[in-house]
Design a protein around this nucleic acid. Structure first.
Length: 562
RNA sequence: GCGCCGUUAGCUCAGCUGGAUAGAGCGUUGGUCUACGGAACCAAAGGCCAGGAGUUCGAAUCUCUUACGGCGCACCA
């Protein structure tokens, strides 16, 4: 039930609608004051009375009932305490009933949300900077599906550009098949880096020629390119598998090669295209932006051209409700330009394109630089975290059977959580010290809490005690606070979708875990008896369900034991 | 120069559509060492919420402005 709504209906303030009151209802800073509070300051002018007096009068006018346990006035606030037993009964019953669907809904039924994330660049290994787009996108993908939308995960491959000409030139000069097969994507990357550092005019010329050969369908050039592409995709797949990331489409830049000409033609027809300094542009000066480059002076297409074609293709294919681009804030201007051009083209759906921008990753000694070899590879971070998890496991739980599997869940979870625990817009300075810290506000803490809860439930089951029986019970403060936090989960999931902010879920789960651990310490579960034990077991089960559902949305696995 | 973003405890960050004494984690100090799992719990210390002005009964939150930092600004993606 909607407590705010219920309470609002009980309040009879002159000239203020129930909706307004429900919107004004807040949660007091200290649970001792109450569960909900109405600040009365706003009514003072209209009612010509002091807020303190208004609160007192309103308090006197409301009689407690089965739902509202207590009404009081304090410093101009009208405070409500709800019936804790009724609240706990309702919340826990719902969680036990809905299980792994707790927090899910069908608000998005019939709507498609396209999510463009991760976007592998062919021939480039993932470094720590690719983590955010990958796990934030992956989390949004699951969150939208959970809310009933059909999410379409799109890996917009970076598979077009002159860099592939350079790569082939470098391979021809310095590389060989055996070495690349052995060294995989890093061997390819090394060739590219070497080209960047050592290429002379002649090689640059060769590179342009090879790029032209790829484009014109030359057999050898395309075979090489496709080889590099398949090596890259096989490599990223191993990382996606570990991070639980999936896609529905790998339509990348090359896919739009033949879809750009019609877009350019449409721009021309609509009178948006202009020549400037030899290039074809869309003038965006009236909107305070630099021009959007559509065609280079040599007639070649550009980044924006492909994104225009891609957006149009996605609309025609999916008729999306929203189309998200999970890309670093560096690209802010680019997306504003592309979205504006589409709007100028009369695409009414341009308003549904969203740049979901996140912050940049740097290292403690400055920005990463592949060319200088100053780079932290994602797979290295993952393996170090898994190794650390394996070592801690060996120390804390030597008897555990499937240590490797658990270490994988713990280590990989810690990596993903690093990009999911804070507001996505914040820049991140990567440090192994932080990544390898498993104490406090971490995914490991969440997983540990799950293992604790699961352990109690397993013990109850072993003793033949029913876990999902829910007696009427008046909870203590620790229990009640935990219940209230569990109740926030569904609306948190919705907010995470609305704001494209998975970290809201992370924060909610950390609060659940904190309150669960407090409850766990203060209230003995298995040592209690009768209704008390039954209630605490139900609360334990509900906490585990909520934590699991949230972690699953974040793409973080939950081991039974650790 | 213009634009976007950021600035909260020593460090890393929360702070919901403005609401009651600004909250966590890490680190520090001190407790809980017979446990349903100590990867935990409790407590202490630590803040002119970058500075200034404004709006408001009320501002970390909204507006303006300054400073500092990040990013971007025509033929790369």
């Amino acid at each position: 039930m909607d407590y705010k709504r219920y309470i609002a209906e009980k309040i009879n303030a002159e000239g203020v609608s129930t909706e307004e009151i429900a919107a004004l209802l807040a949660v007091p800073p200290d649970p001792a004051m109450g569960d909900y509070a109405l600040p009365c300051f706003r009514f003072a002018k209209v009612m010509r009375k002091s807020p303190v007096l208004i609160a007192q009068e309103l308090a006197a006018s409301i009689a407690p009932d089965g739902v509202i346990a207590e009404v009081s006035a304090l410093n101009g606030y009208l405070n409500f305490k709800v019936n804790k037993a009724a609240l706990a009964g309702q919340v826990l019953a719902r969680i036990l009933r809905e299980g792994e669907r707790y927090g899910a809904s069908d608000v998005g039924a019939g709507r498609v949300v396209c999510i463009d994330y991760s976007s592998v660049n062919i021939a480039k290994p993932f470094h720590i900077g690719h983590l955010s787009t990958t796990v934030i996108g992956g989390a949004l993908y699951r969150i939208f599906n959970f809310l009933g939308y059909r999410a379409v995960g799109i890996n917009h491959l970076g598979d077009y550009g002159t860099q592939f000409g350079k790569l082939i030139a470098a391979y021809k000069k310095w590389g060989n098949r055996e070495e690349v097969e052995k060294g995989g994507i890093h061997a390819i990357n090394d060739l590219y880096v070497r080209f960047s550092n050592e290429a002379d005019e002649e090689m640059e010329h060769e590179a342009r020629e090879y790029f032209r050969l790829i484009e014109s369908g030359d057999k050898e050039a395309n075979e090489l390119f496709n080889w590099f592409k398949s090596l890259t995709l096989a490599y990223v797949q191993t990382i996606y598998d570990r991070l639980h990331i999936t896609f529905d489409s790998y339509a990348g830049e090359r896919f739009y090669t033949d879809k750009m000409a019609p877009v350019v033609e449409e721009l021309r027809e609509k009178g948006l295209l202009k020549e400037s300094e030899g290039a074809q542009i869309v003038d965006l000066e009236p909107y305070g932006m630099p021009p959007c480059l559509i065609l280079r002076s040599d007639g070649a297409s550009l980044y924006a051209t492909r994104d225009l074609a891609a957006a149009i293709y996605r609309w025609n294919t999916y008729h999306f409700h929203k189309c998200l681009y999970v890309v670093a804030y560096q690209q802010n201007l680019h997306f504003r330009q592309v979205f504006k051009v589409l709007e100028l083209m009369g695409k009414e759906w341009a308003k549904d394109l969203v740049h979901v921008a996140y912050g940049m990753v740097s290292l403690e000694d400055g920005a990463m630089s592949t060319r200088k070899g100053k780079v932290v590879w994602l797979e290295d971070v993952i393996s170090r975290c898994v190794e650390k998890a394996r070592a801690v496991l060996e120390e804390k739980n030597p008897a555990l059977e499937n240590k490797d599997e658990v270490a994988e869940l713990v280590g990989v979870g810690a990596v993903a959580f690093g990009a999911l625990c804070n507001n996505k817009i914040k820049d991140i300075t990567f440090s192994y010290d932080r990544a390898l810290n498993f104490d406090g506000e971490t995914s490991v803490y969440l997983q540990y809490t799950c293992a604790r809860a699961a352990s109690v439930l397993a013990k109850a089951q072993a003793e033949g005690i029913a876990v999902e029986e829910l007696p009427a019970f008046t909870p203590c403060a620790a229990e009640s606070e935990l219940v209230k936090q569990l109740a926030l989960f569904p609306e948190t999931v919705e907010q995470a979708a609305e704001k494209y902010e998975p970290s809201l879920i992370s924060r909610c789960l950390l609060d659940v875990a904190k309150l669960f651990n407090k409850f766990y310490l203060e209230c003995k579960i298995m040592q209690a008896e009768g209704d008390t034990r039954a209630f605490r077991l139900a609360l334990t089960q509900a906490s585990l369900t909520t934590l699991k559902n949230g972690l699953t949305l974040l793409g973080i696995g939950v081991p039974e034991k650790m």
